[in-house]
C-alpha cells in the first residue's frame, strides 16, 4: 500500500515531465532506491505494472528499472563508515550511537527513456 502511493507520485511527476517535453510514449523509468528507504522493490514492481497501465496513457507498458543504493552510516565518534543494513544505528567499530546515515534513504527518479 505504501509502495502504491509512491508509485502514483512517480507516475504523476514523469507524466508531467513527458508532457512538457512533448513525449509520445515513455518506454522506461529508471529509479535509484536506497536500501533503507522503506521501499520493497518486489511490491513496488507489482504496483508499477498495474498503475502504469491504468493511470497514464503515455506510460502504458512502461518498464521499471531499479538501481539499489547501499545504505551507509558514518560514526561521529570514530569516523568509520559502515553498512547500515548489517549494523544499524550502533557503530560496529567503537559501539557509539552518535551515527548518521550518509546515503541509502533515496527515492530518486534518475532518468526516463522516451520517444
Amino acid at each position: 500500500m505504501h509502495e502504491l502511493g509512491v508509485v502514483f507520485h512517480i507516475i504523476k511527476k514523469v507524466d508531467k515531465i513527458a508532457s512538457e517535453n512533448k513525449v509520445e510514449h515513455v518506454n522506461s523509468v529508471t529509479l535509484e532506491i536506497g536500501e533503507v528507504s522503506m521501499i520493497v522493490p518486489s511490491y513496488f514492481e507489482d504496483c508499477w505494472k498495474w498503475a502504469v497501465d491504468n493511470r497514464s496513457e503515455r506510460m502504458k507498458g512502461c518498464k521499471l528499472i531499479i538501481n539499489i543504493i547501499k545504505g551507509v552510516t558514518k560514526c561521529e565518534n570514530c569516523n568509520a563508515e559502515y553498512s547500515t543494513v548489517e549494523h544499524g544505528k550502533i557503530c560496529p567499530h567503537c559501539g557509539s550511537d552518535k551515527t548518521f546515515l550518509i546515503r541509502g534513504n533515496e527515492v530518486m527518479i534518475k532518468e526516463i527513456e522516451v520517444f
Binding site: 511527476k13 515531465i17 527515492v107 530518486m108 527518479i109 532518468e111 526516463i112 522516451v114 520517444f115
Partner: peptide, 18 residues
C-alpha cells in the same frame, strides 16, 4: 524506434510534495 532518447531527471520523488 530511432527517436528513442533519454531524459535525465535526477530528482527526489518527494520533491514536488515537499
Amino acid at each position: 524506434m530511432e527517436d528513442v532518447r533519454i531524459i535525465e531527471i535526477k530528482a527526489s520523488v518527494f520533491e514536488d510534495n515537499n
